[in-house]
């Protein structure tokens, strides 16, 4: 049963990932991404991390990809783009190198970490234990990192506003 769920969820993830790359239409690619995110959510459920699964769907599928779609629709780039034109000459070989490097790193991490991962203690997922242990981790053990993340988000928001809003006064001054 567990194996079946694992295989199906992994098939979803991989099919979605291939879809993201292979579809020429950006909206279809975004839908492929949604499929991948759902597959990951199924994995979370299978590992009894129900809260993470819910957050995965609400935040990633529900907010982030919707935002992607929003931008795609508003900018009207929802027609297949010509992939033969390359704006930056180096980016494709660079992408290949970085892709290989990252997958190498991930595989190395999994191989090296097998013993550590196996020795991690199992967390019970009865009722609300899931969310409790997560909260304890985030808000007491790693509270500094958590707060730094929120600062990062604020900086990102302020940066976006400053970059996109060039007021008319500064144009006059120029």
């Amino acid at each position: 049963m567990e194996l079946l769920v694992f295989v199906l969820a992994t098939a979803m993830v991989i099919a979605g990932a291939i879809g993201v790359i292979a579809y020429r239409n950006p909206v279809h690619a975004a839908l492929g991404l949604v499929l991948t995110l759902f597959g990951v959510a199924v994995h979370f459920v299978a590992m009894e991390a129900h809260f993470l699964a819910a957050v995965q769907v609400i935040v990633y599928a529900g907010a982030i990809v919707v935002l992607f779609l929003f931008v795609i629709m508003l900018l009207g780039v929802d027609r297949a783009e010509d992939l033969d034109v390359e704006p930056f000459k180096v980016q494709r070989p660079l992408a290949v190198i970085i892709g290989v490097a990252v997958s190498g790193l991930v595989i190395a991490a999994v191989v090296r970490g097998r013993s550590t991962l196996g020795s991690l203690q199992e967390v019970t997922a009865e009722g609300d234990d899931n969310i409790r242990s997560l909260a304890r981790n985030l808000y007491s053990d790693h509270v500094l990192a958590f707060e730094l993340t929120s600062v990062l988000l604020i900086v990102a928001v302020v940066g976006t506003v400053v970059l996109t809003r060039r007021s008319r006064r500064s144009e006059v001054a120029e």
Partner: peptide, 11 residues
């Protein structure tokens, strides 16, 4: 949270 997840899919 399931309801929230579903309403975000309904979008």
């Amino acid at each position: 949270l399931l309801v929230l997840a579903l309403s975000s899919i309904a979008v």
